[in-house]
Amino acid sequence: MNYPRRSFLKLGGSALAALATTAMWPLRALAAAVRPEAAFVAKDLEGTYKGLGGTPTASAEIDLSTPDIAENGAVVPINVTSKLPGTEEIYILVEKNPNPLAAAFTIPEGTEPFVSLRVKVAQTCNLIAVVKAGGKLYSASKETKVTLGGCGG
């Protein structure tokens, strides 16, 4: 494997993992070729943006729907709809999580620039949607108040 997959390496390069990844190669060619590992391991917003290749510009063309108050931070629904033409990627970030980047989606042509997911939110903070459209990064953010953290136990 010529791409950095720290998590896999840590596990001592399990043969199973290698097999599973190899089987996905034909599809991978169409999608983002490499997991943005630097962005996933970053511990703050600045580092995450660096890993994604730049600081996004705020945009009103991104529709971010999240609850104002989440009773359970372990399951917070988030909907992102982008009205920016040429949306290629959608990232979901939770500002104050140990690693802000939660998910990175690639939107091929023919797929609506919309995703809906449930994420964990450790404490009250901004939920941020970053959209890559036409090679540029845009973002929208909204605060969610958490009354019970997502990392209990």
Binding site: L27, L30, A31, A32, R35, P36, F40, A74, V75, V76, P77, V94, N97, N99, L101, A102, A103, A104, F105, T106, I107, P108, G110, T111, V115, S116, L117, R118, V119, K120, G150
Partner: peptide, 16 residues
């Protein structure tokens, strides 16, 4: 291919 995603551990249990 219609959607591809990389996820981190912050996605909720039993992801939807």
């Amino acid at each position: 291919l219609v959607l591809h995603a990389y996820w981190g551990p912050a996605v909720s249990q039993n992801p939807f």
